[in-house]
Simulated scan of single mutants.
Amino acid sequence: MARKIRKYSKGASKDVERAMKKRKAGTLKSGGSGRKVKSRKQAIAIGLSEARREGKKVPPKKSAKSSAKKSAKKASKKSTKKTTKKTTKKKSKKKS
């Protein structure tokens, strides 16, 4: 029988488990704003990102690839597209 290849290492799952316990206790905080994390999905994401930072076996973010492609497309469109605005001068009426 062939063994299944693990996508996530045991250490990575421990990090996620630790993040989930912190969320339950109410001590898990998000990195950017420092607010308490209430969402289960956000707690899992924090655990996985910590595991990635430590170099444990975790697949790369899928959203990061697609968003990078989208931002690259937008940047190339902006650089090729040149917009010129015509400015019109308003004539001021003189009172005499």
Results as ranks from 00 to 15, higher is better:
Arg3Phe: 06
Arg3His: 04
Lys4Ser: 02
Ile5Lys: 15
Arg6Val: 00
Lys7His: 02
Tyr8His: 09
Ser9Gln: 00
Gly11Trp: 01
Ala12Ile: 04
Ser13Ile: 11
Ser13His: 08
Lys14Arg: 10
Asp15Ala: 09
Val16Pro: 04
Val16Thr: 06
Arg18Lys: 15
Met20Ala: 12
Met20Asn: 09
Met20Thr: 14
Met20Lys: 12
Lys22Ser: 09
Lys22Asp: 11
Arg23Ile: 10
Lys24Cys: 02
Ala25Ile: 03
Ala25Pro: 06
Thr27Cys: 09
Thr27Lys: 08
Thr27Met: 02
Leu28Phe: 00
Ser30Thr: 07
Ser30Val: 06
Ser33Pro: 12
Ser33Cys: 15
Gly34Val: 06
Arg35Trp: 13
Lys36Cys: 15
Val37Gly: 09
Lys38Gly: 06
Lys38Ala: 12
Lys41Glu: 09
Ala45His: 07
Gly47Pro: 00
Gly47Asp: 12
Gly47Lys: 00
Ser49Lys: 15
Ser49Ala: 15
Glu50Tyr: 07
Ala51Ser: 11
Arg53Lys: 13
Arg53Tyr: 11
Glu54Thr: 13
Gly55Ile: 01
Gly55His: 03
Lys57Tyr: 01
Pro59Tyr: 05
Lys61Cys: 08
Lys62Phe: 13
Lys65Glu: 14
Ala68Gln: 09
Lys69Phe: 03
Lys69His: 05
Lys69Asp: 15
Lys70Arg: 09
Ser71Glu: 15
Ser71Trp: 09
Lys73Arg: 09
Lys74Met: 14
Ala75Ile: 07
Thr80Met: 13
Lys81Glu: 10
Lys81Cys: 12
Lys82Leu: 10
Thr84Gly: 02
Thr84Tyr: 01
Thr84Gln: 03
Lys85Tyr: 01
Thr88Gln: 04
Thr88Lys: 07
Lys89Gly: 00
Lys90Glu: 12
Lys91Ile: 06
Lys94Ser: 06
Lys94Glu: 10
Lys95Ser: 14
